[in-house]
Design a binder for these strands. Structure first.
Length: 289
DNA sequence: CGCCAGGGTCTCG
DNA sequence: CGAGACCATGGC
C-alpha cells in the first residue's frame, strides 16, 4: 500500500512548512528517544506515551499513518520556529556544518517521567545500550499497547514495586538503585513532575537534581527533551570535547564550560547542542585529530 | 586485553 | 567549589 494513497495517508492539520521542515529520521535518530523502529517501507513505528504511532516522512512534513495527528504534531514540536532557531546558530564552522547536516532535526516534547527515567539510565552508556535498557524495561515492566510490538514505558507507580535485582536484569548495573529510588520518591507524592513545570529553568534544574541519579547533565536533558527549555545545554563527553575545540583547546571547569555554552550557543543553545552532538557522532572519521 | 560510553555521588582539600 | 575514586555493563 503506497504511502500516498488517500486511504493510508493522513495529512497533519497543521502544515509544518510555515515553521520549517521536520526530518523524522534525524529527529528520532539523534539520541533524544530510544524506542522507535524504522519499518522496511521507511516509515517509523513507536509510542508517544501510551499511544502507538506509525509516521512517515512526507516531503518536508510528516504523514501520520497511525495515531492522532495533533498528538504527533505536539510531540514532534512542529510549532517550533525552526527558521528563527537556525538564524541564531553561531557562525563557528563547527556549528554551521552541524546545521547544514541536520536541517529538520527537532527537539521532541517527551513525557516527563519517561524522559526522566530513560536519562537516569543513560549515564556512562552508549546510545545503543540506552535503547537496549529501555526496551528491556518496557518488556519486563511495561503494559502492552494495541497494535504495538513495544510496550509502554512503565509508570513510576509500577516501577516503584520493582526490585533492584529486576532492574539489574535489564542491564542497568549501578543505575538500578537510582531509578528505583526516583520511582519511589515520585510515587510517594513528595515531588510532582508536572507541577514543577511552573518553575523557572534554574529552579526546575535544581528540583530535578534532587532526584536520585539526576545530576546537572541529566537534568539538562530532561529540561530540554521534556520541559521544552530550549536554552538548556546538556554537556556530555561529546559536547565537552566540542566546546573545548571551540575555545581553541582551552579547557576549564564544568561551571566555566557551562557559562561559555550559555553565552556562545544562545537562546536556542539546546538546539545547537543537539545538532553538534548528532553531527559529531555520525560523521566521526577513522582518523581523529 | 584496554578503552570508552549522552555521569552521579561521595569524600577530602 | 574542585579534583578523584568508585560505581556496572557492553561494544569495539
Amino acid at each position: 500500500m503506497p504511502l500516498n494513497s488517500p486511504q493510508t495517508r493522513a495529512i497533519l492539520e497543521t502544515p509544518a512548512i510555515p515553521n520549517g521542515p521536520v526530518d523524522i529520521a534525524l529527529t528520532l535518530g539523534s539520541g533524544q528517544v530510544f524506542h522507535w523502529d524504522q519499518n522496511p517501507d521507511g516509515s517509523w513505528s513507536g509510542l508517544i506515551g501510551r499511544e502507538f504511532f506509525r509516521i512517515a516522512q512526507d516531503g518536508p512534513s510528516l504523514a501520520v499513518l497511525h495515531g492522532d495527528p495533533a498528538t504527533a504534531a505536539h510531540h514532534f514540536s512542529l510549532d517550533h520556529p525552526l527558521a528563527e532557531i537556525e538564524a541564531t546558530f553561531p557562525p563557528e564552522p563547527l556549528c554551521q556544518s552541524a546545521l547544514a547536516a541536520c536541517r529538520g532535526l527537532r527537539i521532541l516534547r517527551q513525557p516527563l517521567w519517561e524522559c526522566t527515567a530513560t536519562f537516569i539510565t543513560s549515564s556512562m552508556k552508549q546510545v545503543a545500550h540506552i535503547r537496549g535498557m529501555s526496551l528491556a524495561i518496557r518488556s519486563k515492566f511495561g503494559e502492552p499497547v494495541e497494535s504495538s510490538p513495544v510496550n509502554a514505558y512503565p509508570s513510576f507507580a509500577s516501577l516503584s514495586r520493582a526490585t533492584e535485582r529486576g532492574l539489574r536484569d535489564c542491564g542497568l548495573g549501578y543505575r538500578a538503585a537510582n531509578l528505583l529510588a526516583t520511582a519511589r520518591l515520585l510515587d510517594s507524592g513528595k515531588t510532582d513532575l508536572g507541577a514543577l513545570a511552573a518553575k523557572s529553568t534554574p529552579d526546575l534544574r535544581n528540583s530535578l537534581q534532587q532526584l536520585p541519579g539526576v545530576g546537572v547533565k541529566v537534568a539538562n536533558c530532561i529540561l530540554l527533551f521534556a520541559y521544552g527549555r530550549l536554552d538548556a545545554v546538556p554537556i556530555d563527553t561529546w559536547i565537552h570535547r566540542i566546546l573545548v575545540a571551540m575555545r581553541r583547546g582551552r579547557g576549564g571547569t564544568p561551571a566555566q564550560l557551562a557559562a561559555y555554552a550559555r553565552r556562545r550557543l544562545g537562546p536556542y543553545g539546546g538546539y545547537v547542542q543537539q545538532y553538534l552532538f548528532h553531527h559529531a557522532r555520525t560523521s566521526r572519521q577513522k582518523s581523529k585529530p
